[in-house]
Design a protein around this nucleic acid. Sequence first.
DNA 1: TTTAAGATATGACATTTATCATATTTTTAA
DNA 2: TTAAAAATATGATAAATGTCATATCTTAAA
Lengths: 237, 237
Amino acid sequence: MAKKEEIQHDCEHCHARYKSIFCQIAPDEVKIINENKWCQSLEKGQQLFAEGAYPHGIFCVNTGKIKIHQMGDEGREQIVRFAKEGDVVGYRAMLAGEKYSNSATAIDTTSICFIPKNVIFSLIEKDSNFSIQLIKLLSSNLKHAEESILHLAQKPVRERMAESLLFLKELYGLESDGITMSVSLSREEIATLVGTATETAIRLLSEFKSKKLVSFEGRKIQIIDVQGLLKVANIHD
Amino acid sequence: MAKKEEIQHDCEHCHARYKSIFCQIAPDEVKIINENKWCQSLEKGQQLFAEGAYPHGIFCVNTGKIKIHQMGDEGREQIVRFAKEGDVVGYRAMLAGEKYSNSATAIDTTSICFIPKNVIFSLIEKDSNFSIQLIKLLSSNLKHAEESILHLAQKPVRERMAESLLFLKELYGLESDGITMSVSLSREEIATLVGTATETAIRLLSEFKSKKLVSFEGRKIQIIDVQGLLKVANIHD
DNA sequence: TTTAAGATATGACATTTATCATATTTTTAA
DNA sequence: TTAAAAATATGATAAATGTCATATCTTAAA
């Protein structure tokens, strides 16, 4: 478990809430959440929860970046999803009443709020609109997961790499210079996202660099040629 | 769209309903569903809905087998999920208010019921327990999808093939002889499930046959050695 | 700073898997 | 039944990708 910080945010005016599944709930419900929530802060690399543990509530990302990952054979990690501001993590296992089937780790300094199980279930009971928000969130995650299945099964690694870079650019955006990706992952992490060996990921990134599709600024990747990447990813219109 | 049959089943005593997300709903709600539903029958190979179309309700499988598949590049199909008796299909897109992101096709003679959108949404509004059932269904689908991502990214084809055979055996069961799989898929379909080329799938199945892990009876596959398949699939305990 | 540890990079090579070609078998339709 | 079409099977080969080895660079710790 992550170390707990004493800073308690105010849910009512929370910028992340407006983007979250809690965006439409009634003021008294916001108050209940506010009184029962718990905020914590995570350093890059800190784990929020681990595969196999039991969930007691859900986590709402306030600021920062989280990766949802799973252990495969021989200890190889696989990134299956990301979360950013306004996203909810750890909800799948909690709603299903199961152990976590994957782990969540901060990939940047991250501030999250914990909302206990009973608060969520009473919200589902009282507010059907909230249920619909949850259902839409799950639906969206499922859609993306099934797209990943399609691409892992059918696209070659080079295409998936280009696609992953564009995906990360879309998801976390660029820094103010307009080219540097906000998210910074190690080559190994990129490999586990793309679904390939670390060396292959490194080689492909070098290739993309030599083709002037991307450039490297320290550990950060800069997107130089979006059109070129789309072409490599075999994505049209 | 599939051809419509006039046989209207009775939801109250429906064997499939007891296994479905509708298993706990109130009698008057069952009555409403019964009055608004529409039953149809599909031949093997008939499509229930197609990627890109707009959903107007959900389908509940009464008897039979359905594959959920998606088109990839160069028209290659990818199977992402299956449905059997009591399963609901076509709900993701409907709930999210989007076009179908995949298609559903009968892989056996199948009888399904169509339940209109408005009936489902009013159920969500009235019955929070029904929402939870839906949420659990989505959760379970998401969990399986993320497991597939892990396996596609990390397991070699041979392991995935063994795993897929065991998965199909679990899902659709065996015939009364105790060895023949109830579901019958073409080699090409198996390939799109496993995520490989048809020739590779054929070779692997021949290999499994020569290793006495499976045998073929016409188009049907018989599971001879579960332990052996588990070993090839690299699944322990 | 200096050293050690970790990350990135690259070459050589092995392995896996896909593709193409072509039989053979099975199913479908005339 | 017979021919045509589709599915299954198998060999030869190419292409993609993974693995191992090793070098270089970067970061963190002493």
